[in-house]
Design a protein around this nucleic acid. Structure first.
Lengths: 340, 340
DNA sequence: ATTTAGCACTCGGAGGATATGAGTGCTAAC
DNA sequence: GTTAGCACTCATATCCTCCGAGTGCTAAAT
């Protein structure tokens, strides 16, 4: 168990290190207004905190630096999430105040302001469209052999896919099929579409169209949706301004990781409510060992649709950042709610 | 006028510097098989080449480094574009051999292989959609107050836009309007749509729909297309591997520039045929002063639709790179042709 | 008239010595 | 339990020296 004094000293050290990125020494701490123990006392406490694993030294005679365990403790017990500044508040209000109709735009903008306000890199996992319900299907022939299928969902999301059509199938057949499909598939989740095509609709189509076998084969290819949720990233270059990433090789591995999207997307797909933090090695990726990630999901009703995340160095301004990520996710949830 | 010997020496120096990124000395050159002048002779020639502005020194007793003028001369007169290696050829064949139906995918893939093969950053300016002809318009009501307009063009490109609909307008009205519009606007270039809406169609709509005034106002907002051509970037992190960009600040300004897209898009919009090169200060942007850009347009018939570009350090492997960019642009042009 | 050998000179970079200062741990006194 | 005092450690900065790669110039060789 930590004494009050230890708590206080630990907090001061971490707060200060987050600000300056420099190891913190005992003399420096003792000069703070809020502190009036002598440097020697503080040194003793620091030695104890180090024994307990909350602090580290960069070399034998350096000041102390928080360990990952230290950050973890700080985030779990010492953090007092800051109020948003009035400037931050107005930015949120301006962004979410005006009515925007396209979800993409909201997310993109959100990623922008989050990275702007924090100077870290924001990553927003867009909504999965698999669960969206089909509102309308349209097939437009392009050439003799190709057509484009357009799927509009209840959320206003539009998917399209060009697919080949065997020449034997006449446009009029195609039209009939689309009518049937529209009739039968409305309100079905996108991910269900290929299945549905099998069961009931199969026989219906057979009655109305020639070459239904071919047709179904190709239609299915048009209806299969395997696109992963989109990632919206803001402030990629912010990472380059962090003193811990002066090293080109570190930056490169982080950048490649963000560029690649797949791992990141996997990492962010959590179902937990509220703010989540991953500090340093708590994430499995080598490239991100000096990073922390703050995430919060956003919802439509009770269903989670996506995730807001912020990537920065482990030495992150947790108090500000946590407040901002939380606020943003709330705003996004609210926006969703207003729409549907 | 340069003597043959000067040409030869200049070429050797630039070739070598491109390879090693190290200043080239006289002794080193004289040891090359293809050269048999003494170091002293070479030094004299180098001094002359420096006077003429083709070479530079990094400090008073260093070897020589090409100046921008040197690179320019090299590219214009000394370059023998290399044949593609068999490995490169097969990669191109594999990529463009199989039939892909979506243009986006082709471009994305292209950007990928170009950056892969060159280790630089590839940037492909996608086709402008303004000139595409409308194939089909569809409007799907989402809620009482919002609908999504989907535009399919002759190239299979799909645009969509959510717009608000005044409550007075009934879905049946909307449907009528869409029918009229589809009838009247088919084959019209996207960029023309808002204009066309004015002239002829105005009166037609008036006859068939109530509240046509409101309707037109909102419809226009749905048909206006102000989306710029998309930029496809591959190998952003490749820049981080160039020794001239070990400096974080340089990297940051380059990255921000690429991230921002607007300036780059403007820079790439040229109409010239064939391979274009911009070396160092030939481009107006501070961030790219140590970079060269190779571009080639790709075409549909005779009409230019987009641009392939490669961004690297001025010390670029021009001979390989020029061949690759050219080859890629040709493949893309060919793919286009096959489609339409 | 070129070309080349020779030599003095320049500069960057590597390596080593030294000083400085911020910081620690420990001990003994308060 | 707290603190003053002191010896000790290590990173960093500075200075010096040395080395080598490279040059420019001059005078000799072709």
């Amino acid at each position: 168990m930590l004494t009050n004094r230890q708590l206080q000293i630990l907090k001061v050290i971490i707060d200060d290190f987050i600000l300056t990125a420099q190891p913190v020494g005992s003399r420096y701490i003792s000069k703070k207004e809020s502190v009036d123990f002598s440097p020697a006392t503080i040194r003793n406490e620091m030695a104890d905190l180090e024994d307990m694993g909350f602090l580290e030294k960069t070399h034998s005679s350096s000041g102390r630096v928080p360990s990952e365990k230290g950050y973890r403790f700080y985030v779990d017990h010492l953090l007092s999430p800051s109020e948003l500044s009035s400037k931050e508040k107005t930015i949120f209000e301006e962004t979410f105040g005006k009515r925007v109709l396209e979800f993409e735009q909201v997310v993109e903008k959100s990623a922008g302001i989050l990275s702007e306000l924090t100077s870290y890199t924001s990553i927003i996992l867009g909504p999965e469209v698999f669960e969206n319900k089909l509102k309308q299907l349209q097939i437009t022939p392009l050439t003799e052999e190709a057509a484009v299928a357009v799927l509009v969902t209840n959320t206003g999301h539009v998917e399209h896919r060009v697919f080949s059509v065997p020449v034997e199938i006449k446009p009029s057949d195609l039209e009939k099929m689309v009518n049937i499909l529209n009739d039968r598939l409305q309100g079905i989740a996108l991910i269900e579409l290929p299945n549905r095509l099998n069961e009931e609709i199969f026989s219906l189509l057979r009655e109305h169209a020639e070459h239904y076998n071919d047709a179904i084969k190709y239609l299915r290819s048009a209806l299969v949706n395997d696109r992963p949720a989109k990632l919206y990233v803001g402030g990629k270059t912010n990472m380059l301004m962090q003193p811990e990433f002066r090293d080109i090789d570190k930056i490169r591995s982080i950048m490649s990781m963000i560029e690649d999207e797949r791992d990141i997307a996997k990492l962010l797909k959590t179902n937990d409510r509220g703010i989540q933090t991953m500090i340093g090695h708590e994430n499995p990726f080598n490239a991100l060992q000096n990073c922390s990630i703050i995430t919060a999901n956003y919802y439509l009703g009770n269903q989670q649709v996506g995730t807001v995340a912020l990537l920065g160095p482990t030495r992150m301004e947790y108090n500000r950042v946590v407040a901002l990520v939380e606020e943003l996710s709330k705003h996004m949830t609210k926006t969703f709610k207003e729409w549907y």
